[in-house]
Design a protein around this nucleic acid. Structure first.
Length: 275
DNA sequence: AGTGCGACCCGAACGC
DNA sequence: TGCGTTCGGGTCGCAC
């Protein structure tokens, strides 16, 4: 699933492929993905060009002349670059055709992804963008900040790591891995998190996301990023999808349980409730 | 305000 | 084998 490292990989890959190419036409085959009026969406894009691609958390931000195109891949959104004559595949929902006869195609099996075009001055106040917390690696993501955010929260730390308003960009895979690296039980309540644990979370989120980006993200299940780029971080997963396998530290069997409806993998020994 | 949960989707995995 | 059912997963919006 695309989390921050996968989205960053998509951003870098796309940036090297589509910048400053003039858009001839846009086709919307499944309108629910677009949060704007579809005619308005097309009108803004035609004859326009992507001048830069930025990112905030899991949101891709394509810079146009006077607008930004925001794109969230959710579970399985992918971008592919193809020849315009290539047959349209089943899950290709949005097609941007450039004047050089290539297409940028948005492919999304589950149709969960979303796109929205906004005026440039609306970026900071956009409802999606403005609520993003700090990203792993940003210097404002400190243990003091986390302790303050967790202080009054009576929910599992695992759930809090997935809250984009606190830390921006983490999904289920990296939340599981960061908790394992930090030796924190995923069920532990936010208010019970100690200073030491908060420091470990800052350090490990930074380390793991940095490493995942270096490896091009995690390819798991059906998810691969654009243009056939395959992530290699899955080779370094320690607990995610490792139910029943021996812990790399202590050999105890990795457990799988649900927290807030999400699969949570952890080592019952290294991540004991009271350490 | 904080918290929990269904809805959105559909292919894969599972159960019989 | 083949069919029906369940699961997963990020985010939103609603209910409490």
């Amino acid at each position: 699933m695309p989390e921050i490292a996968e989205v960053e990989t998509v951003r870098q890959t796309l940036k090297s492929q589509i910048l400053n190419k003039k858009i001839k036409d846009v086709k919307i085959l499944y309108p629910k993905i677009i949060e704007n009026n579809t005619e308005e969406f097309k009108t803004i894009l035609k004859e326009n060009q992507f001048m830069d691609i930025k990112r905030r958390g899991k949101w891709l931000i394509f810079e146009l002349k006077d607008h930004f195109l925001l794109s969230h891949l959710r579970m399985e959104g992918k971008f592919f670059l193809k020849d315009r004559n290539a047959p349209i595949e089943k899950h290709e929902h949005i097609i941007f055709t450039f004047y050089d006869d290539t297409d940028l195609r948005y492919h999304d099996t589950r149709k969960f992804g979303r796109m929205e075009i906004i005026k440039k001055e609306e970026l900071k106040t956009n409802k999606h963008i403005q609520k993003q917390g700090f990203e792993p690696g940003e210097k404002d993501l400190t243990s003091a900040y986390l302790l303050d955010e967790f202080r009054e929260k009576n929910v599992a730390i695992k759930t809090l790591l997935l809250d984009q308003t606190i830390i921006s960009g983490l999904g289920n895979i990296y939340a599981n891995e960061i908790l394992f690296a930090s030796k924190i039980n995923p069920f532990k309540k936010g208010s019970q998190i100690t200073k030491k644990e908060a420091e470990a979370l800052v350090k490990n989120s930074q380390k793991i996301i940095k490493r995942a980006i270096e490896l091009g993200g995690t390819t798991i299940k059906s998810y691969t990023s654009s243009l056939g780029v395959t992530g290699r971080f899955q080779q370094e997963l320690k607990v995610h999808k490792k139910e029943g396998m021996p812990c790399v530290i202590c050999k105890a069997k990795i457990k799988k349980e649900k927290i807030n409806g999400r699969s949570t993998y952890f080592c019952p020994k290294c991540q004991r409730v009271n350490v």
